[in-house]
């Protein structure tokens, strides 16, 4: 059988298939459907300094081949995560990474510091695309200098693998990727959701309580593949690709575009077993194409 093992900085993944933050709960929600140890990794829910309620309902709307969400970082807060959630999930036999979110540099650093203490969490994914931040309401992820500033600060307090998650809602994602690489990121993951909007014409009002929200699912895939390809050619650090992946063929597009690993998000809602099917599909593809090591096709485009 082909070797599917890949590496993101110091983290060895048994295969390139991970799950995307906010779409896979804490992993436990899927334990009835799949053997979680078959996955390369699980990125758990976005975690902030304090408990958050998120945005008012309705905060989801289905769109053609995709969905909009405006969950707004509802989570239990880092202290409860460390005390109650971590003990329940720490022995799952895969890489468990925490998606770290915040509204200020201090909050990002404080959450990262507390997660650093957790032995079985080998890395974090820093979510710098939160729109509700202190400075002028501008996301840290949309300005290269601000992105670099938050990554530099977190780098000082966080000692394990630091993946920085990039937003696609920028003119040049390459510029942001280079800025966070320069500031000490060990890896970048992309894409987060695309800012979108949908209107219920019968009721003459937006579907989401927040009016705008994040678009995900198969409809975003071509944008995501393009961005991963651009970034993979511009930085030295490993790239994690995601956005609309629902099959092994989708995953292979990202790998060929240069991603060392991939994440599956919205597709988990359509089929809670899709991640394992993708792992099996990669094995099958390698066999059909006589590929001995999945790394041989990474970045061939």
């Amino acid at each position: 059988m082909a070797k599917l093992e890949t590496k993101i900085h110091n983290i060895t993944l048994k295969n390139p298939v991970m799950t995307a933050s906010g779409t896979f709960g804490y992993g436990e929600e899927f334990a009835d459907f799949i053997d979680l140890s078959r996955l390369g990794g699980i990125i758990v829910k976005g975690t902030t300094g304090e408990r958050r309620q998120g945005n008012p309902y309705p905060r989801m709307a289905e769109t053609p081949m995709g969905m909009l969400n405006a969950v707004g970082l509802q989570n239990v807060g880092v202290a409860t995560f460390c005390k109650e959630v971590y003990p329940r999930i720490k022995d799952i036999k895969t890489n468990i990474l925490v998606n770290v979110s915040g509204s200020s540099i201090e909050e990002y650093c404080s959450v990262a510091e507390q997660i650093d203490e957790l032995e079985n969490i080998p890395g974090i994914e820093l979510n710098i695309s939160c729109p509700n931040v202190k400075k002028g309401g501008m996301g840290f992820g949309t300005k290269p200098d601000m992105a670099a500033q938050v990554v530099e600060a977190v780098r000082k307090v966080y000692h394990k693998t630091l993946i920085v998650k990039l937003t696609p809602n920028v003119t040049s994602v390459v510029e942001i990727a280079k800025a966070v690489e320069g500031a000490g990121a060990d890896s970048v993951s992309l894409i987060n959701t695309l800012l979108g909007m949908a209107i219920d014409v019968e009721r003459q009002r937006p579907y989401l309580s927040t009016i705008t929200g994040g678009l995900s699912g198969p409809c975003v895939k071509p944008v995501a593949v393009r961005m991963v390809w651009q970034v993979a050619h511009a930085v030295q650090i490993p790239v994690v690709g995601l956005g609309g992946i629902a099959s092994a063929a989708d995953a292979l597009e990202f790998l060929m575009a240069g991603a060392k690993a991939i994440q599956v998000g919205t597709a988990n809602f359509m089929d809670p077993t899709v991640t394992v099917k993708i792992v099996e599909g990669l094995e099958d593809y390698c066999q059909r194409h006589k590929i001995e090591d999945i790394n041989d096709i990474i970045g061939i485009i």
Binding site: T23, F24, G25, E29, M60, N69, V71, F269
Partner: peptide, 11 residues
């Protein structure tokens, strides 16, 4: 969206 407590859309 998910029906199993993973996405937090249905609150």
């Amino acid at each position: 969206a998910c029906g199993i407590g993973a996405c937090l859309c249905c609150v």
